Amino acid sequence: MLISIAIVILLGLILGSFAKKVHLPPLVGFLCTGILLGPFALDLLSSDLLSISTDLREIALIIILTRAGLSLDLKDLIKVGRPAILMCFLPALIEIIGTVILAPLFLNFSIAESLLLGSIIAAVSPAVIVPRMLKLMEEGLGKNKKIPQILLAGSSVDDVFVLVLFASFLGINQGDKFTVSLLGQIPVAIILGFLGGVLTGIIIVQLFKKMAIRDSLKVLIIMSVSFLLMGVEDQLEGILSFSGMLSVISLSLTIFQFQPPIAQKLAIKFNKLWLAAEIFLFVLVGASVNITFALKAGILPILFILLVTLIRMVGVLLALLKTNLNSKEKLFCMIAYTPKATVQAAIVGIPFALGISNGEMMLTVAVLSILITAPIGAYLIDLSYQKLLTE
Rank of each mutant, 00 (worst) to 15 (best):
F166K: 09
F166P: 14
A167C: 03
F169K: 11
G171Y: 09
I172T: 13
N173R: 09
T179C: 06
V180Q: 08
L182K: 15
L183T: 08
G184Q: 10
I186A: 05
G193T: 05
L195W: 07
G196Y: 04
G197R: 02
V198R: 01
I202K: 12
I204Y: 00
V205I: 14
V205C: 15
F208R: 03
F208S: 04
I213A: 05
I213V: 14
R214W: 06
V219A: 04
V219T: 03
I221S: 03
V225T: 09
S226F: 00
V232K: 01
Q235G: 15
E237M: 10
G238N: 07
L240R: 11
S243E: 09
S243D: 03
S243R: 06
G244F: 01
S250C: 12
L251A: 00
T254E: 00
F256S: 05
Q257P: 05
P260V: 06
P260M: 03
Q264L: 00
K265P: 04
K265D: 04
L266F: 01
I268M: 11
I268F: 09
K272V: 14
K272F: 11
L273T: 06
W274S: 01
L275D: 13
L275P: 01
A277C: 09
L281I: 12
V283K: 04
V283C: 03
V285G: 11
